[in-house]
């Protein structure tokens, strides 16, 4: 009898999970395997093109220093964007979770999520309008300030960071907000009653307790930023060549899918290694 129940439960679980697994197989596993297969080919295997299995595409990464240089540049960009997002996002999430109540919180939340609702390309192009010399920012500041200021951030690394931070900031705000809201206010009150200063409360109570959310947000930002290509290309100009843009070139401009696929998998591997190295910290934060 109990066996029957277990069996039924299993069936039910299987039934409930199968759409998700089917989706994962079709939408993620199959395309990824196809790309993984491509990455070991000498040519794009369309039509009569002669091709064979090779590891040349992976070797190219190690033989040409260009790719490693760009990968390192992309990782630095990822760290820079993540750090900036955390520095801006955490105080914002704290205010939302602990200070503001009621309707104004909803309004602020709406403002935080708003960037998510617009197309990312549109966002980046609007930044281009704001940042360029003689653009919106330049004109506004010069209209207000008494002295002449020449602001032309367009086509520079700061422009890329600004564009990416704007795109990914909501992730860290949302995850940190959830973690902060879960902190019991009486803990803070107790600390205060025992004479802890603001800095101590932040360092000993709020930061450790909200760390899981903060780190989750950081990972959510870091991974896509390392592979980003559209923002650097549009906002970066001459300095906008990154690992992601080189991969994009392989697919779009020079039609070398195997090399593009190999470079993508190297990126995936490097990101996984970084996350694995960081996992002790992540696990510690969870407990």
């Amino acid at each position: 009898m109990s066996n029957m129940l277990v069996k039924q439960d299993r069936l039910r679980i299987f039934g409930l999970l199968s759409p998700a697994y089917l989706w994962l197989t079709v939408a993620i596993f199959l395309p990824l395997s196809a790309m993984f297969y491509f990455s070991f080919l000498s040519e794009v295997p369309f039509g009569d093109a002669e091709w064979n299995f090779t590891t040349d595409n992976y070797r190219a990464f190690f033989e040409t220093p260009t790719y490693a240089i760009l990968l390192w540049k992309s990782i630095k960009l990822g760290l820079m964007v993540t750090l900036t997002s955390v520095l801006i996002g955490f105080p914002c999430a704290y205010v939302l979770a602990k200070t503001i109540q009621g309707r104004s919180r909803e309004a602020l939340f709406l403002l935080v999520i708003l960037p998510f609702w617009s197309n990312s390309l549109v966002r980046i192009f609007s930044w281009a309008i704001v940042l360029r010399g003689n653009g919106v920012l330049d004109r506004t500041l010069n209209a207000i300030l008494p002295f002449e200021l020449d602001i032309n951030l367009m086509f520079s690394t700061p422009a890329i960071v600004i564009g990416l931070v704007h795109s990914y900031l909501p992730y860290v705000i949302l995850t940190a907000y959830l973690a902060l809201q879960a902190i019991d206010d009486s803990l803070i009150d107790a600390a205060r009653s025992m004479g802890a200063g603001k800095i101590t409360i932040l360092r000993r109570i709020i930061l450790p307790l909200s760390l899981p959310g903060l780190l989750a947000g950081a990972v959510l930002i870091f991974v896509p930023v390392v592979g980003s290509f559209m923002e650097p290309r549009i906002l970066g100009g001459r300095v906008g060549t990154y690992y992601g843009t080189v991969i994009e070139d392989q697919f779009v401009a020079v039609f070398n899918w195997p090399l593009g696929a190999a470079l993508s998998f190297i990126l995936l591997a490097v990101v996984l290694v970084i996350l694995a190295l960081a996992s002790p910290i992540l696990r510690k934060a969870q407990t």
Partner: peptide, 12 residues
């Protein structure tokens, strides 16, 4: 040519 061009761009 492509290798050279990418190296030049990456050096920026």
């Amino acid at each position: 040519y492509l290798t050279m061009w990418q190296a030049l761009k990456a050096a920026q």
